[in-house]
Design a protein around this nucleic acid. Structure first.
Lengths: 251, 251
DNA sequence: CGCCCTGTTGAATCTGGTCAAACTAAGTGG
DNA sequence: CCACTTAGTTTGACCAGATTCAACAGGGCG
């Protein structure tokens, strides 16, 4: 079994027979023995195209997905069809874990672009957890992280003004890119204006308007999905939060 | 050690030497052997008066709290002081568990009225988890439940109109009371209008106005903190959701 | 080349927030 | 027991921010 481990941010990267190189974000706590074991339980690699659905609400919980490349949005919806995006996920992140309770996914996940994932079957995951005790703890950590992310979003949805929401959003993206050694001031958005607005609880048009206002004020420069943050200071002031955040990383 | 188990909704009620009768909401999965073990790990009983704080954000995670009587609100806040209530908790519920990741509470909890809780120390909890494997699973279940509750709130904060939010809220309260064999159509609110508004992401004044409108339309009758739901049908229509919810109980 | 999707801008509208004030119930202390 | 304080609730007037509706521009792709 060919194997190499690479450190990238706080992720363990592992290659294995089944799916080649992929990143599994069980952030630390796993020593080398653990990672060897991990190899056995990684299953199929799969590719999703833009708009394709990884799982739907209510479907039987069969896999956890580790994102290798591309990006995913997760969302939930009211029974009359309105939907709320709850997160955008990038390589190194794991999604679907919160279905563990009811054994059914409680939301949907859709690819924002061509996206490669590793499916980890529930059975394997549980078997792994039996053999490697720290996996249980990692699961708790990951769910706790999700709770924290959701709390941040609730605060934003419940208490912030549209401008503040967008500034907060841009800074949070910036931080996530920085953590992965990408440029924190210049990046491409894989999601549409509509998706951003949906996620932040504001209308698509409001997103556009505020982007243009930011641009007029020299805070950012946008060209369709490409964006440059020109004035992080000012953006932080608008978002009313320091940059970077002291010691609480976004998910 | 005197011990008696009582079924109430889906909670195991246990009395033990340390804290007398209390309800620990590890919903099932624990057989009688487990509950015997459980007794050992329950620690101090404590009383909090209205407005008193159980824990603050950033404080070291020492206890999980099981509510015996009264009620608690949990909240988080922006770094410039605005706060968002994330949940109201009633007897039988457990709070503080999501601090397990960073070993620090990531939000605050405040008593809404005189409230009695059992403190369960982290050490004891971990020791318990070692001895009783199902506890780990229960912890995952509970965090998953919290995630689901938060998702509901995000959907509400991001996509619903003020009227809809209040109707949804009243129905959710009604369901929770019903689960505990209290009247689902007539109850006392332990939280202020301000708290309700904060939780739902609308102004206190808006809560009042909509309550009066509901009253004018004959949907409810209110007298300060006491409320009677007169027309559940109509309330469900306003909330745009069926009553009761098919098979997904609110937390 | 022409269509479609996404993004942008403008104008009208409206929901809900803010501010101010009155009112009520429940304490609190003399 | 009453005057006074305080916290919570309710209502009104005003208006700002955001939504909605509508039209249009520009890329990307068949």
């Amino acid at each position: 079994m060919s194997r190499q481990t690479i450190q990238e941010s706080n992720c363990v990267a592992i290659s294995c027979q089944n799916c080649g190189l992929y990143q599994l974000c069980l952030p630390m706590g796993l020593d080398s023995v653990d990672t060897v074991l991990l190899d056995r339980y990684v299953k199929r690699k799969r590719l999703f195209k833009r708009g394709q659905v990884l799982y739907r609400a209510g479907e039987e919980f069969t896999f956890v997905f580790a994102i290798r490349s591309g990006s995913i949005k997760t969302h939930i919806s009211t029974n009359d069809g309105r939907l709320q995006i709850t997160g955008f996920h990038i390589p190194g992140e794991l999604i679907g874990l919160n279905a563990i309770d009811e054994k059914r996914y409680n939301g949907e996940a859709t690819a924002l672009e061509t996206t490669s994932v590793c499916e980890i079957s529930l059975d394997c995951f549980e078997e792994l957890a039996r053999q490697v005790p720290s996996v249980h703890y990692q699961m708790l950590r990951m769910m706790s992280k999700e709770i924290k992310h959701n709390q941040g979003l609730m605060l934003l949805l419940g208490k912030k003004k549209a401008e503040e929401r967008l500034a907060t959003y841009l800074l949070s993206l910036s931080r996530r890119f920085a953590m992965r050694n990408y440029s924190p001031t210049q990046f491409n958005l894989s999601m549409s204006r509509g998706d951003i607005g949906n996620y932040l609880g504001i209308a698509e048009e409001t997103v556009c308007r505020i982007f243009t206002r930011f641009q007029e004020e020299g805070v950012i420069v946008t060209d369709r999905r490409h964006i440059i943050l020109k004035d992080i200071e000012r953006l932080s002031a608008i978002a009313r939060e320091p940059y970077p955040i002291p010691h609480s990383k976004q998910q």
